[in-house]
Design a protein around this nucleic acid. Structure first.
Lengths: 204, 204
DNA sequence: AGGATTTTGTTCTTTATTTCACAAAAAATC
DNA sequence: GATTTTTTGTGAAATAAAGAACAAAATCCT
């Protein structure tokens, strides 16, 4: 199992390769990738090693083969469904932004507490009451969820999701969720981020 | 200067204290704070030490005094203005969500390229064309910015912001910005986050 | 008042992550 | 074909971060 920081950089490398103006085919050196991704060259080599792909001295890495190896690591083998809980400002923003961006990763179900927001189709996606998580999440084989509900509701929602089979959570609510071992969580609290950035922005 | 991980936890501690059901006044132990914030007790003590506040053996920390010390570190001495560039789905979501949540931190100006979105008032906030960054950002003394424009436009926007005096950036665009030393940046790319979470969610 | 107990502040270990540096390999050049 | 050059793969060193452990201090209890 690869560690989170490495996975993050691998995703970054793939995107750098795809977005790089140069031809999609041909060779690329670790130090070129390093510049594209904003990391050091030894870091690139070590990370690439981690996925079992090998370049060759002098010619470097083959773009196509490397992209294939990265894809095998990063892309879900089959299309993966994501649940989004909390169709408020942040939730809708993410829904509109994300939908259709990744071929094998799509938001497939929405959940909310508000009766006015449920049993509708929002941006092509059906919305359910949160009580339906236990039924809908397993039936769609959902293992990834986004939480964008107010802080006071987040722990309850997280518990429901985990009980329904979710194994990874992207949390926008401003609290630290208490979850069992083995559930992967990433916190994306906007307020905390801005306070942190404001702190560093005013140092000097 | 305190390092980013410590600052993040300090912000977390403060929020934990504020949200804790117990009385706002009275004492609290490092191990209680540790539970609230989801970190270890020695970590709490070390972090608290970093801001120069001291508790006392047996009685622990004084909630009020600790909150005051945390606030002095975290809160801007005077109200701080934030710029938001890119009034798309993510940008609007953040604007609606964030506005009014922190007393001394507010989004004060919006920027966009789209002529239909500029020179308007959106959620109580004036919007300008990106060309106006050079004029508006210094005039409002803005040092913190949020970038929520498409990837291809992000580097240009970032350069404009930095030239106009911005020192900290919260970046939602899916690229790694190249910035001069001393500019603090935090990347919050939704697609990358979801790919990462999906990877760990499917490792059984 | 004196001992027991509990919690902080802090040093010392441990663990994780990154960078350095160089041997091995392969293309290019002579 | 031999030599030079350049780049990968990776062990070793350096750096950073977290945890364990304990002395010092202060309350509580008898």
């Amino acid at each position: 199992m690869i560690n989170p920081k490495v996975i993050e950089r691998l995703i970054l490398y793939r995107r750098s390769l795809l977005m790089d103006g140069e031809a999609r085919s041909g060779q690329i050196y670790s130090h070129e990738m390093a510049v594209l991704a904003g990391v050091s060259a030894p870091q690139v080599r070590r990370d690439v090693m981690a996925i079992g792909y090998s370049g060759s001295p002098i010619t470097g890495y083959d773009r196509q083969a490397l992209l294939r190896a990265l894809g095998e690591m990063i892309d879900p083998p089959e299309p993966e469904s994501v649940a989004l809980v909390g169709v408020g400002d942040i939730g809708r923003g993410i829904l509109h932004y994300f939908q259709g961006r990744r071929p094998r990763l799509a938001i497939a179900a929405l959940f909310d507490k508000d009766p006015d927001k449920v049993n509708r189709v929002i941006h092509g996606c059906r919305s359910y009451p949160v009580e339906e998580i236990a039924r809908v999440v397993p039936s769609l084989k959902i293992r990834v969820a986004i939480i964008s509900v107010p802080g006071f509701a987040a722990q309850d929602v997280a518990d429901r999701l985990v009980n329904a089979g979710v194994r990874g959570i992207l949390n926008y609510a401003p609290i630290r969720l208490k979850l069992p071992e083995g559930i992967y969580i990433e916190n994306r609290d906007v307020i905390l981020s801005l306070e942190k950035i404001a702190y560093f922005a005013r140092q000097t």
